[in-house]
């Protein structure tokens, strides 16, 4: 952990010291979304519904950013072709 700063060194107005991307939340997960690329029809409903912006669309295929995915399962629930399954983390 980096050295903790004095309150005088903080920006005013509760502005944080770091980007939220520096706080990885992937380890909160108990279930992990796994995409079956053969079933996926690339409708991007998962991308729309993901509350954490953890569904990545690179123009060709859909993937999951596991650094930030909290495993809520909304993508799996919304997927119209059942291409996403929630697999328990080991």
């Amino acid at each position: 952990m980096s050295e903790l700063k004095s309150w005088r060194a903080l920006p005013l107005g509760t502005v944080p010291l770091k980007f939220s991307t520096e706080f990885k939340t992937g380890d909160w997960r108990t279930f992990k979304p796994v995409i079956n690329q053969e079933k996926c029809v690339k409708c991007l409903l998962c991308w729309i519904y993901c509350p954490e912006m953890s569904i990545v669309w690179d123009g060709e295929k859909v993937s999951v950013n596991y650094d930030f995915c909290k495993g809520c399962g909304i993508c799996a629930c919304e997927c119209p072709v059942k291409a996403i399954s929630m697999v328990p983390e080991r």
Partner: peptide
């Protein structure tokens, strides 16, 4: 960003 999470460390 204004007012996001600040835990016991901040």
């Amino acid at each position: 960003t204004l007012g996001p999470l600040a835990l016991p460390d901040y």
